[in-house]
């Protein structure tokens, strides 16, 4: 799956200015960068939901428009940035929604159970999603994306997972659980692209990082090569310390400075 020199203008702002990215099968790539860098827009172009003004996207060598919605859905599954359902489905219903009707019901049930187990929600299948906590619901939507991915594989296509902030609103344990599920999919041959904001988490869980700012990919490669203090300070506008973390991965600590007014209380 690749994006080549994408340019896209949304309203007045030029969101993508020559973004290029190549995602390989079997790897987890984290897309990092400050808010407004164009990460979600790049993901939407890769998923076929948006078409760029200039540049091209290829999924298994084909243009998204040529694949059509159903063909795309077999090849790539997407977790949206703020997934929500207007209807109070049961969790298993929600997850099964993403499985195309070509899959027979028994197999669809098995895929649903597998996807729910992968995010640790196996015991919640019959629960109504409006009765779940925010984090449980978010993992439920992650299970929906996984189920679609598994169904795509069962139909002989599958292979790409696009996750927009899959760890948002999750506690530490479940952040790890969701990304481990993504890693497991990659181990079975999927190419996973995940937008992440926690740089240390990204460094620990991803094979490669792509750092995005102002509509372009600034750096791409193994975590240690991408995450340099100078680069991060320039991109995020905040001094950053990079140390070696427990697993040998870079651990990122921003250096916060309290503003002068906070420290002392002086009266004129």
């Amino acid at each position: 799956m690749r994006a080549e020199d994408l340019h896209l203008r949304l309203g007045r702002s030029e969101v993508l200015r020559g973004a290029s990215l190549a995602l390989r099968r079997g790897e987890v790539m984290a897309l990092i960068g400050p808010n407004g860098a164009g990460k979600s827009t790049l993901l939407a172009c890769l998923s076929g939901a948006l078409s760029p003004d200039r540049g091209r996207v290829r999924i298994d060598g084909q243009a998204p428009a040529a694949l059509g919605p159903a063909g795309l859905a077999r090849r790539r599954a997407v977790l949206e940035q703020s997934p929500a359902s207007a209807a109070p489905f049961r969790l298993a219903e929600l997850v099964a929604l993403a499985i195309p009707p070509e899959i027979p019901p028994a197999e669809a049930g098995a895929l649903t159970a597998r996807a729910l187990a992968a995010v640790g929600l196996g015991a919640f299948a019959g629960r109504r999603i409006d009765r779940l906590s925010g984090g449980e619901r978010h993992r439920g939507h992650m299970a929906r994306a996984l189920a679609q991915h598994l169904a795509g594989r069962a139909l002989g296509a599958g292979g790409w997972l696009l996750l927009d902030e899959p760890t948002a609103s999750l506690d530490l344990r479940h952040q790890a659980a969701v990304l481990q599920a993504a890693r497991a999919a990659a181990a079975e041959g999927a190419g996973v692209l995940a937008v992440l904001h926690d740089l240390s988490l990204a460094a620990a869980m991803a094979d490669r990082l792509a750092l995005m700012a102002e509509g372009r990919i600034l750096a791409e490669g193994p975590p240690a090569a991408v995450l340099t203090p100078e680069r991060l300070a320039a991109v995020y506008g905040l001094p950053v310390a990079v140390a070696e973390g427990p697993g040998g991965h870079p651990a990122i600590t921003p250096i916060y400075r309290a503003s002068q007014g906070d420290s002392t209380c002086s009266s004129p």
């Binding site: 795309l72 859905a73 949206e80 997934p83 359902s85 207007a86 219903e93 929906r144 679609q148």
Partner: peptide
């Protein structure tokens, strides 16, 4: 029926799941 179920997730998510919205 399936399309309307998917629409409950929003148009973008429905498209992602393969619906020709």
């Amino acid at each position: 029926a399936r399309g309307l179920d998917l629409m409950q997730l929003g148009e973008r998510a429905a498209f992602h799941a393969g619906l020709d919205v």
